[in-house]
Amino acid sequence: MNLAELERKLLAVARAAPPGDRVPYAFEKRIMARLGARPVADVSGFWARALWRAAVSCLAVVLLLSAWSVLAPARNNPDFSQQFESTVLAAVDQEGAN
């Protein structure tokens, strides 16, 4: 069998018969329906909304803490450093007492 001739002939057949360009009925309507159904990915919008929400939450926390620090009644308790020190050294104190 002459393979080169077979190849030439088959390619000529393929060239002579271009595929059809028929479009299925209402194809464009289906595409538009798919586009309408799928949410458009708006990455920058998503980040802008998320950052604004985060900023509002942070501002609320800051305001609450500020109000609390200003308005909270002063206590007579020893300060945090003293409490921390006595907790850490509690075991040593106990040993000394024994």
């Binding site: 271009p18 595929p19 059809g20 360009d21 028929r22 479009v23 194809f27 464009e28 595409i31 538009m32």
Partner: peptide
């Protein structure tokens, strides 16, 4: 204006389908 995409699909689909049929057989 998403609706303006429809005429584009209508206009260029024949060429798109002819191209695809060169590579895929099943409709």
């Amino acid at each position: 204006d998403t609706a303006s995409f429809e005429p584009l699909v209508q206009r260029h689909s024949p060429r798109v389908f002819a191209t695809i049929r060169r590579y895929a057989r099943r409709e």
